[in-house]
Structure formats: structure tokens, C-alpha cells
């Protein structure tokens, strides 16, 4: 009997002592004053603040139970990783286009059910984003989308256009993860196009021969090794008659399937080249985790967003 009490008291003491060891992320003042994101409506700001700021800003409002060691270490790791991925505290240092991209990304992570982290909403139900709030976010994003404030695009009227089928010889540096540029994608088949009103671009998604064969035989789940997609983005360019065509080249991105070679990045090799100089995108070897994070909700579709047009559904 005595022995049992000793053990219980020891454990209790240890727990109390442990409370002095706290990760710095959870020691801040409780309930900081709400920060208003510049240029964002009050309503939208409120939604993000309740649902996201705990992990995505330096303004963490924790409940007492979040601060108990060892719970707080789990919370702190969420906050650390969350801030690394997206930090609303840096809002003011972002350009308008980046702010808009961040908000679109945020909404899409809510729509896919990934955010706020389900493990978090289980304990903090008030952080759940309901249908009404989603509608509010959608309405707000449409109001700031490219289409809503047209007429700013500079006309681009090149005198001479190099034919699509003719590729000038040039040196293009590989992507930081070692993936080499693929110059002849413009001769591949187009499997879809997108009008990205979130960032004012038009895109064509091309597929190489292996991928097109898989499409023809409807064996795309998963896409076979050797399949490659190229997605080219151009600035939307407004014409006199109100139509919008593909203007200045922005970038081309590739996804190269090799389940074994690229096992670390979900079976795809990722690369992006930007601008007329085709500068490889990414600073670090693992820059492609950014690609994988955003493509993650498509894991049941082999990480591919595009639903190809069925090119072979044709009869004459």
C-alpha cells in the first residue's frame, strides 16, 4: 500500500516538473489580439484566424490543455511544420499575387479536407470550416480573381514567331533534383487545357507517347513508368474583341513517372523551368516536396490533377 502511494506521488511530481519543460511555440501569451491581414475582408480574416492561425501564424491561441506537457510537444510540432509551410505572420511581406495564390491554396486545402488538420479539429471543433464559411471564402476569392479585374495585361505582339515544331538548339540547366529539361514536348498530344483564373494564366497539358498509349488502352491507374506530362503556362492576354489568348510564356513543368526511381516523391520526378531563359525552379535538392504537397489530394488518382480528355472517343 505505502509503496503504491509513493509511486503515484513520484509520477505526479514528475508530471509537475515536466510542465517546466515546454516548447517555445506553446509558451506565448494566450489569446493575442487578432491580426488583420492587409487587403483581406474582415469576414475572411475571421475565418482564417479561427481555423488556421494557431498553426500558421505567430499568433497561437492555445487552450490550457494544449499547454500540458507532453501534449504541447505534439502541438508545437504542428505549429513548427505549419508555419514552415504557410505563415500568415509574413503576410505583409508578400506581393499581391503571392497573397492571392496563398489564399487559393488555403481554400483548396480546406476543400480537400486536409486542413485544418483533422486531428486538431477533433479537439478544437470550433476550428472546423463550415459550408457557409466556405461559400464566403469562395465569393471573396472570385472577387479578387484575375477575371474580376481585367484590362491590365500588356499586349504582346511579336513580329516573328518560331514555329512550334522547330526547336532552337540551346543549353538548359537541369532542375536542382537532377531532372533534365525535355525540349520536344510541344509535339506531344494535348490532353487538356486550363483557364486558371486564380493567377491569370492559360495552360496546355501535354502527354508523351507512353502516356497517350496508356490513355488509349485506358490503363492509367496507375500511369505506367515512362509516362510524362508537361504543363505549359502562358499569361492571359486580352484581345480587342474581348477574347483572351495565350500571351507571354510563363513556365513549363514536368512530371515523369518512374515508380522505383522516384519512389521518394510519390513515383514522379518533378521539374519546373521558368521564363524565356528556362531557368530551373527551386533552390534546394528537395524543392519538389512543394509539388508533392499540393498534388497530395490527388493521391487516389496517382497524384495527377488533370482528367485527360478521352482523345480516342472519336468516330467518323
Amino acid at each position: 500500500m505505502k509503496r503504491k502511494w509513493k509511486i503515484i506521488i513520484c509520477i505526479a511530481l514528475a508530471l509537475v516538473c515536466l510542465q517546466f519543460i515546454r516548447p517555445k511555440e506553446t509558451t506565448g501569451s494566450a489569446y493575442g489580439v487578432g491580426k488583420q491581414l492587409g487587403g483581406v475582408s474582415r469576414e475572411v480574416n475571421g475565418i482564417l484566424q479561427t481555423a488556421c492561425f494557431d498553426c500558421h501564424s505567430s499568433e497561437t491561441r492555445l487552450h490550457w490543455y494544449d499547454k500540458i506537457t507532453p501534449v504541447n510537444f505534439l502541438v508545437a510540432s504542428h505549429i513548427r511544420n505549419g508555419r514552415k509551410a504557410l505563415d500568415f505572420s509574413n503576410w505583409d511581406s508578400l506581393a499581391t499575387a503571392q497573397q492571392s495564390a496563398a489564399l487559393y491554396y488555403a481554400l483548396n486545402k480546406i476543400l480537400s479536407g486536409e486542413m485544418p488538420l483533422p486531428s486538431y479539429t477533433a479537439v478544437h471543433p470550433q476550428a472546423k470550416v463550415d459550408e457557409n464559411e466556405i461559400e464566403t471564402l469562395k465569393r471573396y476569392l472570385l472577387s479578387i480573381s484575375y477575371g474580376a479585374k481585367q484590362g491590365k495585361v500588356a499586349p504582346n505582339n511579336p513580329k516573328e514567331i518560331t514555329a512550334v515544331g522547330v526547336k532552337p538548339e540551346r543549353e538548359v540547366k537541369p532542375s536542382p533534383n537532377g531532372i533534365a529539361y525535355i525540349p520536344d514536348y510541344r509535339n506531344w498530344k494535348a490532353i487538356s487545357t486550363t483557364d486558371r483564373f486564380d493567377n491569370g494564366t492559360l495552360r496546355i497539358i501535354f502527354a508523351n507517347e507512353t502516356a497517350v498509349k496508356a490513355l488509349q488502352s485506358k490503363k492509367t491507374d496507375p500511369w505506367p513508368d515512362g509516362s510524362i506530362f508537361a504543363k505549359t503556362a502562358w499569361k492571359q492576354q486580352q484581345n480587342a474583341d474581348g477574347s483572351i489568348s495565350a500571351g507571354k510564356f510563363v513556365q513549363v513543368e514536368f512530371m515523369i513517372k518512374d515508380a522505383r526511381k522516384y519512389a521518394k516523391t510519390k513515383g514522379w520526378g518533378w521539374g519546373r523551368w521558368k521564363g524565356d531563359d528556362l531557368l530551373p525552379y527551386g533552390k534546394t535538392l528537395d524543392f519538389d516536396t512543394e509539388c508533392v504537397s499540393c498534388h497530395q489530394p490527388q493521391r487516389d488518382n496517382d497524384y495527377v490533377f488533370t482528367r485527360p480528355i478521352d482523345l480516342f472517343n472519336f468516330k467518323n
Binding site: V164, G165, K189, L202, F206, S245, L311, F312, N313, K315
Partner: peptide, 23 residues
Amino acid sequence: ASVGSVQGLPENPLLLTALTTSI
């Protein structure tokens, strides 16, 4: 979005090379 059956169309347009896109 596929083309489906079109009587008399000599070739499958979607298997030619895409030159540009517009809206």
C-alpha cells in the same frame, strides 16, 4: 469533353498538334 462521333470529319482533330489555346 471528347469529340465523339462526327459523320464526315476526315481526321480526329484532338490527335493533331496543339498550337495554342484561348478563352
